[in-house]
Design a binder for these strands. Structure first.
Length: 466
RNA sequence: GGUCCCAUCGUCUAGAGGCCCAGGACAUUGCCCUCUCACGGCAAAAACGCGGGUUCGAAUCCCGCUGGGACUACCA
């Protein structure tokens, strides 16, 4: 039975990189009919917060990455780490070290200055007596010679010389285990079969393998996936823009779009770009994960989001968009009318936030007129076209789209101008700009009264200007 | 500095020795559609980092170089 896990440390929100790691683990487990476990690595007491735990959980839920077991918290498993630390101590595979962080730091600096390796010199390894007045850490007795090989199904066989690895601290002076130790105990206790994680952990892996061996644990399968980079090819971080998963939700991205984007970042399936969740589960495999780091490309995410917006049924989309409109102060009363609005905006918007921007035309009556648009279409200060439209609309009952178009064309013929001129003048009257959803959509949604109001307002604007 | 990883269009990638004077997608440009903007359709431009090998033949294998990244904590 395949068992994978996602093990974030709660020191911030769920970010893009973590989300992709979680997704890969989740997909692999689902593909194999296995289990996906969530574990919170909160042994860094200083930086871990409950708010971060909740933020991560929210992010996972929004992406639809449900877990089968957990969340487990490392801080609630202290006795397990103590047990194995003691075991190593008793078996002579670990020892107390009384060096202070300050001493260690000094020695490291000194070694670096002298051009030597800044590794721990193992001076406490054979200490017979405790050092009075100091709280020791526990260090792992790493082998001096030989090599440790990481068998990684993405990177291949990676060989590390043991002389490069020093005696790492496995338990801090306050009794809290360090990452490299806790992660091993946890993965073994939770029967994790496949460890899929960022390749920033590849260098840690030989140390962990040494601990597995010292404790006679069976090794899991390792798969180190390449990092996600920003546009400048350095590790993706805040300065590259939004990195929080939930920030994308707030910006009006659909979870399906983000997940689809993420799965294709570092993984491929021939020429395929669009995957439903089920297709992903069915097709995901570790073999097709690439070896090189990938640059996060917001443009492509935007394209995918637009794709999923177009693909989402309008009724469903309207429910998602509602919050965004209400947040902007536009109250949604009639469901069917709102769906009409959403429908008209659907092919024009790439995010839900854009719906509210372009959609303002349906809600605002007292807008400003765009200067460039006015200069282009009302330069001659002639309101006759708008007046004709107004008269035509005043004398008609509810138009259908065909009749509306005939009217516009008729006025164009009558005034001997292009249809587009009439349309654009009307558009500016209705929206203040030369860009908007379809004219008929607008008048149909806002109704006769508001249409006439906006026409008169535009006529006043033009004539006042004259 | 040391260790480790990586290297195909601007970006995500296909490519597992001949099917590749390198395919798809995003972005870009042009054309068509059209009441504007979009959508949609069509088309174009755009890459195997460099140098050595191996081989009848290399984007694909090997070595070196260069470049990028990660790690180097009583962080994870």
């Amino acid at each position: 039975m395949v068992r994978t896990r996602f093990a974030p440390s709660p020191t911030g929100y769920l970010h893009i990189g973590g989300a992709r790691t979680a997704l890969f683990n989740w997909l692999y487990a689902r593909n194999k009919g296995g289990k996906f476990i969530l574990r919170i690595e909160d042994t860094d007491l200083e930086r871990s917060t409950e708010a971060s735990v909740n933020a991560i959980l929210d992010g996972m839920k929004w992406l639809g990455l449900d877990w089968d077991e957990g969340p487990f918290f490392q801080t609630q498993r202290m006795q397990r780490y103590q047990y194995f630390a003691n075991k190593l101590l008793e078996e002579g595979k670990a020892y107390y070290c009384y060096c202070t962080p300050e001493e260690l730091h000094e020695r490291r600096e000194k070694a670096l200055k002298e051009g030597k390796k800044p590794t721990y010199d193992r001076r406490c390894r054979n200490l017979k007596e405790p050092v009075a007045g100091r709280k020791p850490v526990i260090r792992f007795k790493a082998p001096h010679d030989g090599e440790t090989v990481v068998k990684d199904i993405i990177k291949g066989m990676v060989v590390f010389k043991n002389e490069e690895l020093d005696d790492l601290v496995i338990v801090r002076s306050d009794g809290v285990p360090t990452y490299n130790f806790a992660v091993v105990i946890d993965d073994v206790d939770m029967n994790i079969t496949h460890i899929i994680r960022g390749d920033d952990h590849l260098n840690n892996t030989p140390r962990q393998i040494q601990i597995y061996k010292a404790l006679n644990f069976e090794l899991p399968v390792f798969a180190h996936v390449p990092m996600i980079l920003g546009s400048d090819k350095t590790r993706l971080s805040k300065r590259h823009g939004a990195t929080s998963v939930m920030a994308y939700k707030e910006m009006g991205y659909l979870n399906k779009a983000l997940v689809n984007y993420l799965v294709r970042l570092g993984w491929s399936c021939g020429d395929e770009e669009i995957f439903s969740i089920n297709e992903m589960i069915q097709k995901f495999n570790i073999e097709n994960i690439g070896k090189s780091a990938a640059v996060f490309n917001p443009e492509k995410l935007l394209w995918l989001n637009a794709h999923y917006i177009k693909q989402t049924p309008t009724e469903e989309l309207a429910m998602l968009a509602k919050d965004f409109f209400e947040k902007k102060g536009y109250s949604i009363t009639e469901k069917s009318k709102f769906e009409r609005i959403v429908e008209s905006l659907k092919p024009r918007c790439r995010t839900l936030l854009e719906f509210t921007e372009m959609g303002s035309v349906y809600f605002e009556n007292e807008f400003d007129y765009d200067v460039a648009s006015v200069n282009k279409f009302f330069a001659d200060k002639d309101d006759s076209i708008l007046s004709l439209i107004k008269t035509a609309l005043e004398n008609t009952a509810l138009l259908d789209e065909k009749k509306f178009e005939d009217m516009v064309k008729g006025i164009a013929a009558q005034k001997n101008v292009k249809v587009v001129t009439v349309a654009q003048q009307l558009r500016i009257a209705l929206s203040g700009k030369t860009v908007s959803p379809g004219l008929f959509d607008i008048i149909d949604v806002i109704g006769k009264e508001k249409t006439l109001y906006r026409l008169q307002r535009a006529i006043d604007f033009i004539t006042k200007k004259a």
